[in-house]
Simulated scan of single mutants.
Amino acid sequence: MMRRFMLAAALTLAAATAHAAEPIEGNWKTASGETAAIGKCGTAYCVTLRTGKYAGKQIGRLAGKDGEYSGEITDPAEDKTYSGSGSINGNSLKMRGCVLKILCKSQTWTRL
Rank of each mutant, 00 (worst) to 15 (best):
M2E: 15
R3P: 11
R4I: 07
R4K: 08
F5W: 14
M6G: 00
M6S: 04
A8V: 04
A9M: 14
A9G: 02
A10D: 13
L11T: 08
T12W: 15
L13T: 12
A15N: 07
A16V: 10
A16K: 01
T17F: 11
A20T: 12
A20D: 11
A21K: 00
I24N: 04
G26W: 09
W28F: 02
W28M: 01
W28N: 02
K29D: 14
A31V: 07
A31W: 05
A31I: 05
S32Y: 09
G33H: 15
E34V: 03
E34P: 08
A37D: 15
I38G: 04
G39F: 00
K40E: 11
G42C: 14
A44I: 02
A44H: 06
A44C: 07
Y45K: 01
Y45T: 04
C46A: 10
C46G: 12
T51S: 13
T51R: 04
G52I: 02
G52N: 05
Y54S: 07
Y54I: 00
I59W: 06
G60W: 05
L62P: 03
A63R: 01
G64E: 14
G64T: 13
K65G: 06
E68H: 04
S70H: 10
G71M: 05
G71Y: 08
E72V: 11
E72R: 07
I73C: 03
D75F: 00
D75K: 00
P76R: 02
A77T: 11
E78S: 11
E78G: 06
T81H: 05
T81R: 03
Y82H: 03
G84P: 01
S85P: 12
G90Y: 11
G90W: 12
M95G: 08
R96T: 14
G97L: 07
C98W: 15
V99P: 11
V99T: 14
C104D: 08
S106E: 15
Q107H: 06
T108P: 02
T110E: 09
L112A: 06
